[in-house]
Design a protein around this nucleic acid. Structure first.
Lengths: 214, 214
DNA sequence: CGAGCTATCGACAGCATTGTCAGTAGCACT
DNA sequence: AGTGCTACTGACAATGCTGTCGATAGCTCG
């Protein structure tokens, strides 16, 4: 009980920009683990090593902080997909690569979890950039080319087929990164990483086979 | 301002059992919409038309209430699957029916949403009845029979194939009932119900085809 | 009708969390 | 060194939610 006036640990002073991203990082970690409602100002502040009014100073309100984190996560999900779409050529394994890119974008970090948190809470999904529509277009174009190459040009591929395939891929991979481990254990597969990868490859192969044959 | 002593609306007195289930129903609705952290004693109580101490009287604590709801939801997911498994014969459309039953069990009410809430929050999934393991067994048995019927008995079907198929089906359908509507709109399909049903049929067909051919 | 059981209630205590405010302390620039 | 800007802080107010307590009022049984 000898402390008399609280030594008042020396303050660190960051630039506003540094502080903001440090806070966003911490908040994102909480978000991935516990969802939007799991973001506490005090905890986030403690993670960064500041007091909670500092967080409010930089973001104005808790809600604004949450919005900022969601915005950043969305960016980091969509950006790589859009990039792949922009540079995508129609070479041999185009379909497989396309699927892979979607899978990675969605699984990267805990971002699929965030997608679920959002839709579960009835979030608004503020921005309506819809990269999936473009994925469908590209995938369909690939199918058409493939079919033309192989000569039997009679039947054009069904668009609904392509759409369903993209939806299935997206559903499967987002869900996998949330309940994957549990499910694999439940069906008697050890939840190790190789299983997850094998599964991903299996799904890709299944879809490619279907899209190229039917 | 003429009310002088609050008329004190007449009380309704239910049996403990009735009160419990009424409260559980209300709590489940909140759970499906907003997740476990969205269950507020006051709101649940208001939905039922009682005061919040009444809820505590019946369940002891908020946590106990949440546990009770989760328990009941789990029951209502697993029971029909287990029932189907018990009575399942190996007739013609066995595989399709099996898939259908899993789909329905999981989509029924908002229960898939609860599954996601739970695993997202790192819940413990208290009981370890694992109906999926049985689903895999039955599905594999069906495959084996089918193959035997068709004569070319050389290669036995791959077990991993069966497991992956069950996992894929489960992932796809649980995810669909959470993000289905959004996704369908995003790929350019109107989110109406017929689309959802067509998709489900499409997935079932894709899987059955793969399992019976490969 | 009277008595006991208990489902139900209003009021309040305790705690956590967000937000406000006035003041402090790093850092850049003169 | 001095000055200005602002990132940062502790203390406190305000709100909301869980849980407690003593009292009340329906229902059943004698």
């Amino acid at each position: 009980m000898t402390k008399r006036k609280r030594p008042a640990a020396p303050r660190k002073r960051r630039t506003a920009e540094e502080a903001r991203t440090a806070i966003l990082d911490a908040a994102e970690r909480r978000l991935v683990e516990a969802g939007p409602s799991g973001i506490r100002l005090q905890e986030v502040a403690a993670d960064v090593g500041v007091s909670h009014p500092t967080v409010l100073h930089h973001f104005g309100s808790r809600e604004a902080l949450v919005d900022a984190v969601l915005e950043r996560v969305q960016q980091s999900i969509y950006a790589p997909i859009l990039e792949e779409l922009r540079t995508s050529s129609l070479e041999e394994d185009a379909m497989a690569r396309l699927l892979d890119r979607v899978f990675e974008a969605v699984e990267q970090r805990g971002h699929a979890r965030v997608l679920f948190w959002l839709t579960l809470q009835g979030a608004k999904l503020p921005d309506e950039r819809e990269p999936l529509r473009h994925v469908v277009e590209i995938a369909h174009e690939i199918r058409r080319q493939k079919r033309a190459q192989e000569g039997r040009s009679s039947r054009p591929p069904s668009l609904e087929d392509t759409r369903f395939a993209v939806v299935l891929a997206t559903l499967a991979m987002t869900a996998k990164s949330v309940l994957g481990r549990h499910l694999f254990e439940n069906v008697g597969l050890g939840g190790d990483d190789t299983v997850q990868q094998r599964f991903r490859a299996w799904v890709a192969k299944l879809l490619v086979k279907h899209l190229e044959s039917s």
